[in-house]
Each structure stands twice: as structure tokens, then as C-alpha cells.
Design a protein around this nucleic acid. Sequence first.
DNA 1: CCCTGATTCGC
DNA 2: GCGAATCAGG
Length: 183
Amino acid sequence: MSWTDERVEQLRLAWMEGKSASQIANLLGHGLTRNAVIGKVHRLGLAGRIKAPNAAAGQSRAVAAPQEARAVAQSRPAAAAPVPAARMVRGATALAIQPQSQTLTETQPEEIERVVLPMSARVTIVELRESMCRWPLGDPTSSDFRYCGSPTHAGPYCSHHGGLAYQPTDARRRDRDRRLALR
DNA sequence: CCCTGATTCGC
DNA sequence: GCGAATCAGG
């Protein structure tokens, strides 16, 4: 397949609409790769379009890096070595159809409350007190990470989580003991 | 690992 | 001119 006027036009349109290179590649089909699309886009002088609603990643190459430095860092072995095989699967990942929606808004404080409050007493680390259960809930790297916060029972956890924390060991010993007894 | 675009360069 | 390989980054 080659770049007919028609296909170039489709490319131009889709690119201007903010479609990603891989999306366009699938759109035009015929085994076209996203590399081919990007290459054509550049040859057409279309690179650097407006911020599209989608296009989540990769906006960092706006300023061309020093060609000299890159030339050195990117001296490619070309078709030198007898490249075994593999590589055939490359374009496959581009086949996924992606939803066009999503709004990249940060999670608003109000939203967090609405989501978190309903799940009983969970607390943030700053709200955590000595008497409160330290059982972690959720992803520690996430902003909605919380601790249980229920009244502590014996150790650092409430009765429920204390049980979860120590049961495995006990259960293991119990299992072992039982196995020995039954033998 | 998934993806994004950017660049180089053999063909 | 084309696009795979590679880079750089979210």
C-alpha cells in the first residue's frame, strides 16, 4: 500500500482530530504501522498538533534535542548482526481500540469524601491516633489510601484486623498440630 | 508493561 | 519518500 491522495487526506484529518498514530494506523488498515503514520506525518509537516482530548502521553519531544548528541547515542547496528527472528509481533499492540472519553481532571477533594465516607470510619495518616486501628486500606501510593481507624483491640489493630493479622500464623500452627495429631 | 510521539537512516 | 528501529517519556 502506498500513500494515495485519499489516504493522505484521511491521515491528515485523523491526525488533526487528535487521533494517535496507532489509532490512525488501524484506521487506514492494510498493516500500516504507527511508525509509518508518524513518519508520514512528519514528512507532511503535520507534527506538533494541538492538545487533543486524548493523546495522554508523549508530549515531551516538542523541542528537538541536539542532533549531535542523539546521533552518538543512537548509532544503530542496522542490518549488521544476523538478527535471529522475533520482532514479527511488533505492531500487534496497536490493534486495541481505545475509548475516546476520559477527562483528565484530578480527583477533587469533595469527590474523595463522597467515596470514602460511606465506607465507615476510614482515616488518613494524619487523622490516625494511638487508639485507632492501623490496618492499611488501599494503595499506599494513592491519594485515597486510608487506615481502618476503628478502636484498637489488643495491638495496633482493631479486633477484626487483629484477627486477620495474626490468624494466618495460628492457623498454620493449628494445621500443623492437627496434621501431627492425625498421623 | 501499556502507550505516546520524535528522530535517524538504510532502503 | 518510506518506515523499522530506536529513543525518550507518561
